[in-house]
Amino acid sequence: MKWIGLIAVIFTGGLLLSAMDDFPNWGDAHSPANSSPVSQYYIEQTMTDSGVPNMVTAVLADYRGYDTMFETVVVLIAGIAIMAILRVAKQVPGGAKPTPAHEVGDQHDIIIGTTCRLLIPVLQLFALYVIAHGHHSPGGGFQGGVILGASFILAAIAKGLDPALQRLPEKRYVKLAFVGVVIYVSFGVACLILGENFLDYGVLHELLPTMSAEEARSHSMLGVEIGVAFTVSMIMFAIYANLASKGELEGGL
């Protein structure tokens, strides 16, 4: 069987390499991707369309925001799928609860506890910065959401899963994960209601008279990034909590 796998890999690799001589040169300014009207448009028009200096965010959240909406849905599905497969119903109260093999007791290591107490607020503030600054500098909802989720996971690792789940119970993180997608979609639907195509943020300036169409685009990007961050951070924590406790949401690692 290993030989069949090797042959398949060599064949696929050969197929991928066989087109190499037809590729445009590395960094060629006249390659099809660089000279197409699409990339030209992004480079020339992003500033005038939305005033967003980070072109990548503009492509991601505005020009191709439809893809990003579904990517957010994909993240949501990943969390829902893990819950659907792993989650087991709560044990009956009378039933004997298996004691964990390594009982550590309530007092956790003071060094770890203190470090995390100092680190988590910084992490969360940094996460908010990354989310809020996505359209000006590298960052955005996915990255900031992951950092935010990581801060919850750190709390769960340091203090145990149960205290973390008291702060952020299952009902709440599932709800917030859905709310993230709702935020994203409602920006699109608001555009529909105002009579333009889905996710055409420009029209949202009618809601706030002081805002220009460009500002509306820029602010809407921030809005959808916040939605993305909600979903990503909550799903990060949901996946950790379910995997760490085999779906029982008790005890944990």
């Binding site: 699409v38 030209q40 448009y41 020009y63 333009e196």
Partner: peptide, 15 residues
């Protein structure tokens, strides 16, 4: 033909 976000001017910048 429906252009999401209304990005239709050079076809291909939007979806």
């Amino acid at each position: 033909r429906y252009f999401v976000g209304g990005w239709s001017r050079p076809v291909g910048i939007g979806i």
